[in-house]
Design a protein around this nucleic acid. Structure first.
Lengths: 220, 220, 220, 220
DNA sequence: TATGAATGAGAATTCATTCAT
DNA sequence: GATGAATGAATTCTCATTCAT
């Protein structure tokens, strides 16, 4: 009883981890499909295959659960960005890679777009409660900072580019197109999800961003 | 939106118009603040100062009410765009004007951003039911088409620019920044609503768009 | 529509009053039997024969409903006290009448005892929210004040009796016996609700109170 | 309460005692603050610093736990009463002492008042299940009986006083004032817990009880 | 047109209790 | 003895919608 060998994985926490992970996954899907206000705790429980009570046991309430989902979602994209090793690439190539990565990440992770949109409808009320979200983002800013500096030093990029503004622009161009694709498709009567449309969009985005960074301000 | 001429006695129809307008205004505000799923019919009635039943009398149900709000919102921005008379401006100036207008319209009309985000969380389920939304947008595309053609003819703009892509990009750069300003402010720890930040953003956006349109593709 | 003759009872408010009264009665009974924490809104709805939603429509929530019940309950006993017209009685007789009335009121209105006990378990959290409860009690204090003064002027009562202390004592002697009758019956193994026990209790209480008021302090 | 001699190894039984005592203390506090219906088993576990399951292991369920708390509470006050050694005091002094003791016990032990009130809201449903509560109270009645007899024999007390009625009255006067102090303070707008108010109350109570016991019935 | 009253279906959350170890 | 995980049955409260006038 008392000499439980701690050299192997604690067996009890296995189920805990599995249950928590299942709840998080289910919550992510539910909130992605319906937003925070439209998401249902009941459906999350069914999706996760756990008792509804367990959600409250682990996550407190719907709001805290949503925040957990958000934090995991942000952690995922930030981690993926770090895996690009942009520092190892030549500046223009690094910028192209970042634009392309962001675009494809948004394409492959609709939950990111949806959760973000929902959280902004809530005026970031959940994110504001997070203790770890800020520190999660300084590496990204530093990464961009290094990239821009390298480019400027090599005479490839214009000077005075704000890394945060640039990142927001990169994200903007993909986000708006993909997150609002439903309404855009209706109002313009086009299928913005068609393969060639997507390809064209990435080219357009890259043109915009790289064109901007590489240009002489005075040429405008 | 509904300018059906009423030849019948005026007093009643005036009240009708007033009530309908009050409901629409109240609904717009409510949905802007809480999104579609989070918006409450009860609160709309209170905000409009009318009996809840009247909302159903005029608009059928919550979904149709939301659609009405959306249609009015789109009508407003499209009409404002036409009032710019871009055709009368020199191409580059016209493009700058459009970027600036779009930015300031988003700034002054947070309801547009919020309703758009909410409707996309619903996968455009309301807008799809609209009969008039499509035709509302062809003038915009035509406007952009003429502008780009003029610029290309004068050798000011690169060729092959898709007007829809360009419009989406212009909207993107402002939309993402403003609509997601809540989460962005948290994750980057900056006040993106500060006066100088807003000014800087518009300059950045204009640089991006005009720089792109004016550039030789091969220079990239 | 607009010329609704107001000379007869407003027909609309009939049902309103009936529903509200039914809810209040049902709530009073439910809270009497189970206390505030043990009372169930569902059961109140069933008891009142109304839709559960209507309770929230009229009373907001469980706490406000409980407060309403409390206020009505206090109003009832205070009104009944005023109906005794103690001012018209000779002082000693008036005091006996008040003791007897209080005792019989408690006997006939178990809800008063139970609601009071429950509210004190809640540390008067509901009553503290009441705007009208204070003013409801000043007439009682004034009544007692006049009674004691008359008795002292006639040399029938000792001087220096605090009306609030006296009223609390009168209420105490009946309240404890009746409200705690369940535990007292168990621990003393007696049926305190038997007719002769009740009679004896009233005699005992009257002896205590009248004996005290009539006595010379120094004779003790 | 449970003095079964444990001849087995001490260490385990000591932990047992400690856990049980911690649970009882925690339960007493929880039920005192929230009553039986409002008390939470979860909170008791946290307060006691033990696993929730342990509560069920030792006490079966919430009801039995509450009964245990009640029995201990009654045992405490009855034992304290016996420690007064009223038999050694002169009758009037003994009566004064009992009134004063009861008052101060209630003041120092709010749990007694609260648990009693809660149990009566439950119509003594727990106490009725107790096998030992009855026998716990006969010594008290005998004590009072002896006291009254001594006083009557010495011509100090009136005859025909029922010891149970007298004890109930003594308890009444303090209980109502202290247990219902929350509502009384609100309705009378006085701080009944102020030091001078408490002092005055004890004097008033003593006057009432001793005055009554010492008086000639016919003098009224 | 307009309204106060009313409702059924469901929403988040709670709670005492038990399972498996 | 002791514990973390898990649960079914409530419980309060909400919401879009309709009834009756």
């Amino acid at each position: 009883m008392t000499q439980k060998p701690n050299t192997r994985q604690a067996p009890i926490s296995r189920d805990t981890d599995r249950s928590q992970a299942a709840i998080l996954r289910a919550a992510r899907d539910e909130f992605t499909e319906h937003g925070f206000a439209g998401g249902r705790v009941d459906r999350i429980a069914v999706r996760a295959g756990v008792n509804k009570r367990l959600i409250y046991y682990y996550f407190g309430n719907k709001d805290e659960l949503f925040l957990s989902v958000l934090e995991h979602t942000y952690a995922d994209i930030r981690q993926a960005e770090q895996s690009l090793h942009l520092d190892a690439l030549e500046p223009v190539e690094a910028l192209r890679t970042l634009v392309s990565f962001t675009w494809h990440y948004f394409l492959d992770h609709p939950e990111f777009l949806s959760l973000l949109a929902s959280e902004n409808l809530s005026r970031a009320s959940h994110l504001k409660q997070s203790g770890k979200i800020r520190e999660m983002h300084s590496p990204l800013v530093q990464l961009l900072d290094r990239l821009l500096e390298r480019g400027q030093a090599q005479g490839l990029f214009r000077s005075g580019i704000d890394p945060v503004q640039l990142y927001i622009s990169i994200a903007s161009l993909g986000f708006f197109y993909l997150a609002n694709n439903y309404t855009l498709s209706v109002i313009f009567g086009r299928d913005l999800r068609a393969a060639d449309a997507l390809e064209e969009r990435l080219a357009h985005m890259t043109d915009l961003v790289v064109g901007y960074a590489s240009s002489r301000p005075d040429t405008l």
